[in-house]
């Protein structure tokens, strides 16, 4: 597979702030790639570097083999769905969607036809004459999507596109985006701070922290085999075991991670003090103190639930302990 977007040692510094710091990245053609991280971790700056709104302080950026760091945004084969959608308030929905074609010099009749077709695809047929201010958040999102796709970009960049939607709509749009990406077959680069969104939608996930990529991998790898304590902690809140603890169990002096659902109550094992018990519906989350190390345990429905203040014995299968790189 050819690479769609490649970063080699890319940095973007704002004065003393290293928003992006020496990032290497390789996004394959046709991939659904998520950039995950807390706010301020550099993921959005990376997206803006691909789109061309930022220029790297150092390093090279390639889009489909073309070095682009000196190419302005309007000459790049990528389009963006903005976090605030950025629909033009003075244009109606049809002209918003047709904007790229208008700039490309297409005749009014043709571009309006294409825009109406694109609106049909995002289930907004018949909304062409409305103003963006007359649409709901979910509808604006679809307009932004149609507008970004009408130029047939080689890659679509999405900057937290679902952030402003309510939970139900968000889940629906996650499904639709995935289907859309599969049907179009183009590369999607998706920025989010929501780990479940990244894991459920993406083919591969890059986890960002403090301007650096901490780990790149499939959702399964990120979830079950985090390479750094940050990844284990940020993605689905794994239990991070300190090196001393892991050394006693395995003999390796390195951080370890155990998923909360892998921890169970046992007849013999580690002694743990129950701090809080919270009922989550499908499971019960129990916060524990294991010899000074905080851990959480997810107990399935029907399991025996300890009370807070109790001392219990817990254990996990040896293969559920993931030992990180020392």
């Amino acid at each position: 597979m050819t690479s769609a977007i490649r970063f080699s040692g890319v940095s973007r510094h704002f004065g003393d702030v290293k928003a992006v710091d020496g990032v290497d990245l390789d996004i394959a053609e046709g991939e659904f790639f998520a950039m995950l991280g807390p706010s301020g971790s550099g993921k959005t700056t990376c997206l803006r570097l691909i789109a061309g709104f930022e220029r790297p302080t150092s390093g090279t950026i390639e889009i489909f083999g073309k070095v682009v760091q000196d190419t302005p945004p309007y000459k790049r084969d990528v389009n963006t769905v903005f976090q605030d959608y950025a629909l033009f308030p003075h244009l109606n929905v049809r002209d918003n969607v047709a904007y790229g074609l208008m700039i490309a010099g297409l005749a009014k009749k043709n571009r309006h036809k294409s825009a109406d077709d694109a609106l049909e695809i995002v289930a907004l047929g018949g909304y062409g004459d409305r103003k963006p201010s007359e649409l709901s958040g979910g509808q604006r999102q679809r307009v932004a999507l149609a507008r970004a796709l009408i130029n047939q970009p080689k890659a679509l960049l999405l900057d937290e596109p679902l952030g402003a939607l309510d939970l139900k709509l968000r889940e629906q749009m996650q499904e639709e985006l995935k289907v859309l990406q599969r049907n179009l077959g183009i590369t999607f680069v998706f920025v989010t701070h929501d780990q479940s969104e990244a894991l459920s939608m993406a083919d591969r996930v890059a986890v960002f922290d403090a301007g650096k990529i901490i780990q790149v991998g499939t959702p399964e790898a990120i979830y079950y085999r985090p390479e750094r304590p940050f990844v284990a902690d940020f993605v689905g809140s794994s239990n991070v075991l300190p090196p001393e603890f892991v050394a006693k169990l395995t003999g390796t002096m390195a951080y370890g991670a155990v998923r909360p659902e892998a921890v169970y109550l046992a007849d013999h094992g580690h002694s743990a003090c129950v701090k809080t018990v919270s009922f989550l519906g499908t499971a019960t989350r129990v916060s524990l103190d294991v010899a000074g190390t905080p851990m959480t345990m997810l107990l399935p429905k029907g399991a025996l639930i300890p009370k807070s203040g109790e001392t219990v014995l817990i254990d996990w299968a040896a293969h559920d302990l993931h030992v990180m790189h020392p």
Binding site: P73, Y74, T80, F82, H90, Y99, I103, R147, A148
Partner: peptide, 27 residues
């Protein structure tokens, strides 16, 4: 006029003059 409108216009292929004419001026 939010800054992302200008970026959206550039993103969709408009250069600075086109962005000024079609996005900034009308607003």
């Amino acid at each position: 006029v939010s800054g992302s409108l200008v970026e959206a216009s550039m993103d969709l292929g408009a250069n600075s003059f086109q962005t000024f004419r079609y996005v900034i001026m009308p607003n």
